[in-house]
Computed example of a mutant assay.
Amino acid sequence: MKKSESHIVPELSAPIRLQEYGVGIFQATLTKSALKKVLKKNYITVNNIMATSATFINGGELIELSISEEIKPKRKLVFPLKVLFEDNYLAVIHKPAGILVSGNSFKTIAHALGQNIKESNLPDAVYPQPIHRLDYATTGILLVGKTSNSIRALNGMFENKEVQKIYYAVAIGEMNSSGEFTSEIDGKESQSNFALCESVLSQRFGKLNLVELEPQTGRRHQLRKHLSSIGNPILGDKEYGVENLILNGKGLYLHAYSIKFIHPFTKEEVYIKDELPERFKKIFYLTQHGLKS
């Protein structure tokens, strides 16, 4: 049996390589690596001609995906998500702890988006795709693209540092009131700013701090590594924490609190907040001035 899907390319302002345009237009091409795999296996044609990574798209083409597959019973992931903002181009959701954003697992945010996000009625509508990543244990705001043009525009905004994100973490130990991290992570420059909002004494941990974090780059585990590097690991961090101060069973106290950017199509400012989880509030008495408004 063959699994077939088709996509008609809308009018484009400039030619673009299929390996860039094709991300997200089919269920089997939700990521760049997945698209490269199906191209390598000759599963995609453009106007009935076998496509490669060098194929250019100009607008108006018929892109078809055809994959030979065995008939297998389909499992449906049922996972409700809280949608914080949505329009025809993009959405902002709350990511709970304990689930991957994407990957080969059955239970991922990417797989659950179709049942939680409304389908765009624009001509370049695609299956909703996460634009960035949050760790398995991290909670908070996640940005989602709903059209191929929106996904490309939002990815470009992240690369150009046009998206402002604020996180909050609970860090362990004495620490300065503010500061800046700069270091190399996986061979690439990384930078984050931090500000201490509130501290409480703890019999087990000495001191617990509510810390506001603003990453300037987006490296893997960046905020966790930065806080650990100055001796203030995040509460619940089993990978970068101090062995005798590991908190078991309560999760990681890191939350993506807000996101701010200029909408790439409406040109209006989008500013969305996702309030702190109750487990944060149980540690601190959070006054109104304690968080960014």
Score class of each variant (00 low, 15 high):
V92C: 11
I117R: 01
I272G: 08
E184R: 00
L154K: 05
K281C: 08
A110I: 08
V38D: 05
S178E: 14
S228T: 03
I57A: 04
Y136N: 01
H226W: 02
A256M: 07
E278Q: 09
R219S: 07
A137E: 15
D186A: 14
E174M: 14
G290I: 09
Q216A: 05
Q191A: 10
P130V: 03
A54C: 06
K225W: 01
G231C: 07
K41G: 04
V9P: 08
I283W: 00
E5Q: 09
T52V: 10
L213W: 10
G179H: 00
V270F: 03
E198S: 09
F26N: 11
I93L: 09
H226F: 01
L39R: 04
P130F: 06
K250V: 02
I67E: 11
E86R: 03
T266F: 08
Q191G: 01
K118V: 12
H111A: 15
K165T: 05
H289M: 13
K250R: 12
T217F: 01
F79H: 00
D87I: 06
L142P: 00
S120V: 05
K82H: 11
L113S: 09
E162Y: 00
A51V: 04
H289G: 15
L100C: 08
I151N: 14
P10H: 06
H94Y: 13
A125H: 13
G156D: 14
K273L: 14
T108V: 08
S148E: 15
I109K: 03
K207P: 10
L77C: 09
K207H: 10
S192K: 01
E212H: 01
V242D: 09
L213E: 12
L276Q: 12
K207Q: 15
F205S: 12
G103R: 05
I93Y: 07
N244V: 01
F280E: 02
L122C: 07
Q115N: 15
G22K: 14
R152E: 14
G249H: 00
I57E: 07
A137M: 14
A51T: 03
A195Q: 10
L291M: 10
V83M: 11
N121G: 12
Q203W: 00
I234K: 03
G206S: 10
T182I: 11
K37N: 06
F85P: 07
S177V: 12
H255F: 07
Q115M: 09
S6G: 03
S33T: 15
E159R: 13
F106A: 13
R279L: 05
F106E: 15
R204W: 07
K72H: 13
L235V: 09
P277K: 00
M175Q: 09
L62V: 05
K2S: 08
M1R: 03
A169V: 01
P215R: 02
E5A: 13
G236H: 02
K273I: 15
L100G: 00
M175L: 15
Y43H: 12
Y127A: 13
V144S: 08
A171N: 13
G173A: 14
S192T: 09
V170E: 03
F194Y: 15
L100Y: 12
L12G: 05
R279F: 06
V270W: 01
P277H: 00
L18H: 02
Y89A: 02
